[in-house]
């Protein structure tokens, strides 16, 4: 496992007078896939909003040992957030376009990657013409091509049916083993977290703090049960 990359310490957020995050601490190493599991509405998405700079918080965030400069994260929001008015290829290049890269260059740069994401031949399709799984892969491709230090995935498969979701998880695991992207995944699906991650943080209900940290090794079924018990017991 690589060196420590993201180091979050004692992160607290209050929204509208209510504490959402309570001294939350977590770390992600380079090349590591870490999941954050928690009950619905626990504040998992809030953590991402803090990391991407959309929300202020107290506490300390360090990236490679220093406060993050620029935007080190590529963010994949809940659902796919594809723009219906852009063709698939123009959705995928969105991040590069925002960075000021010309459309032609952005397209050239991502062209070889469509096959890997199972999207070759669909570049000119509108999002509504794609299946749920394809939309998610396009959204993931849009995240990856930004070439950031770390991926933030906010319940990427939440809107998919169970079968498509399982297929996507398997596909993502393969992709991830090939590329060793560093990723932080937010989910409330225990099996998804166990399938994809190296490590799992289990959060409490609001205000969210870390209840337990699990390394994904050994008997995965037992691990799943353990995690579920931790989630169900909560603060008790």
């Amino acid at each position: 496992m690589g060196a420590l990359m993201l180091d979050v310490r004692d992160l607290s957020v209050t929204l509208g007078g209510r504490a959402v995050l309570d001294r939350l601490s977590l770390r992600v190493n380079k090349g590591e896939f870490v999941s954050i599991l928690g009950p619905s509405g626990a504040g998992k998405s809030t953590l991402f909003r803090v990391l991407t700079g959309a929300l202020r918080a107290t506490g300390d965030i360090r990236m490679d040992g220093a406060p993050p400069r620029g935007q080190p994260f590529a963010f994949m929001p809940q659902r796919d957030a594809l723009m219906p008015w852009r063709r698939m290829i123009d959705n995928v290049t969105l991040g590069l376009e925002v960075q000021g890269i010309s459309r032609a260059e952005a397209r050239a740069r991502i062209a070889p990657m469509f096959a890997e994401f199972g999207l070759d031949g669909f570049q000119r399709h509108w999002p509504h013409q794609l299946s749920g799984g394809m939309r998610q892969r396009a959204a993931l491709m849009r995240t990856v091509v930004q070439d950031k230090r770390m991926l933030l995935l906010d319940e990427p498969f939440g809107a998919l049916d169970a079968l498509t979701r399982a297929g996507m998880q398997r596909w993502l695991k393969d992709r991830w083993q090939a590329h060793r992207w560093t990723a932080l995944l937010v989910t409330h699906d225990v099996r998804e977290a166990v399938t994809l991650s190296d490590r799992i943080y289990v959060l409490s209900a609001r205000p969210a703090r870390v209840l337990h940290e699990f390394a994904v090794t050994g008997d995965l079924h037992r691990l799943e049960t353990e995690i579920l018990e931790t989630l169900l017991e909560g603060d008790a």
Binding site: T52, Q71, P77, Q78, R79, M83, L94, V98, Q99
Partner: peptide, 23 residues
């Protein structure tokens, strides 16, 4: 979600308008 995505990409308010709000 689309606005949050653009903000995470570092898009300015004007870019968010042009790329998301206007369409």
């Amino acid at each position: 979600e689309i606005e949050a995505l653009l903000q995470s990409m570092g898009a300015s308010r004007a870019k968010v308008f042009r790329l998301a709000r206007l369409p």
